[in-house]
C-alpha cells in the first residue's frame, strides 16, 4: 500500500522544505499522523527513543524534573518545528520529557525506519543530518542565551561580543 495521503503534508512542513521528491517518497513510509490532548506525554525521559515529531499544530514543551519536585519547562516547540533527536544516536533514549501544552497534531517519524533508509541512501542521510544539525545548533545557541539570564542584572562589560 502506498501512503499517498501523508506525502503532501510532509512536503508542506518547513523541516522538509525543498527535499527532493525521491527522498520525500522514501521517508513518507516512516511517517504516521498523530494527535495528543493537552497535557499528554509525547515522550518520557529514559524511554527508548524510537521516533521524532514534526509539529503541525499546537505547542509541546521539553521538561525536566524540577530540583524541588514538579517539572520545569525549559523550551516550547511550536507548529512548523521539529522535536526529538535522541533516535539519531545511541543509546536511543529520550533525555527529556516532551508534553503537549495544547492539543497537538503532529507527524510521528519512525526513527528505526528512517535510520535504515539513511544507511541505504547516504545522500538522503546526509541531507537529513544537515537539517537536524541546523536545528540542533539553533537550539544550542538559544539554550546558551538562556544560560546568560538575559533579563537579569546585566551590564555590558560582562557580555560577550560576537
Amino acid at each position: 500500500m502506498k501512503v499517498t495521503t501523508l506525502e503532501p503534508i510532509l512536503r508542506e512542513h518547513p523541516f522538509f522544505a525543498g527535499l527532493p521528491d525521491t527522498g520525500l517518497t522514501l521517508i513518507t513510509g516512516c511517517a504516521k499522523n498523530v494527535r495528543f490532548e493537552a497535557g499528554a506525554a509525547l515522550a518520557r525521559e529514559g524511554d527508548p527513543a524510537e521516533h521524532f515529531y514534526l509539529i503541525r499544530e499546537g505547542r509541546v514543551s521539553l521538561e525536566l524534573p524540577a530540583p524541588h519536585g514538579g517539572t520545569v519547562k525549559i523550551q516550547t516547540i511550536d507548529a512548523g518545528e521539529v522535536v526529538g533527536w535522541s533516535w539519531l544516536m545511541p543509546p536511543y533514549q529520550w533525555q527529556f520529557d516532551i508534553s503537549a501544552v495544547t492539543p497537538v497534531r503532529a507527524l510521528e517519524m519512525d526513527g528505526t525506519c528512517l535510520r535504515g533508509k539513511c544507511d541505504a541512501d547516504p545522500r538522503l542521510g546526509y541531507e537529513l543530518m544537515k537539517r537536524f544539525s541546523r536545528v540542533m545548533v539553533e537550539r544550542l545557541a538559544s539554550t546558551r542565551l538562556q544560560l546568560l539570564d538575559l533579563y537579569g542584572v546585566q551590564h555590558p562589560a560582562s557580555s560577550p561580543t560576537s
Partner: peptide, 13 residues
C-alpha cells in the same frame, strides 16, 4: 557603575 557592576572595570578601559 550600574547595578551589577561597573562598565569600565579595568584600568585599561
Amino acid at each position: 557603575y550600574m547595578h551589577g557592576g561597573s562598565v569600565q572595570q579595568s584600568a585599561r578601559s
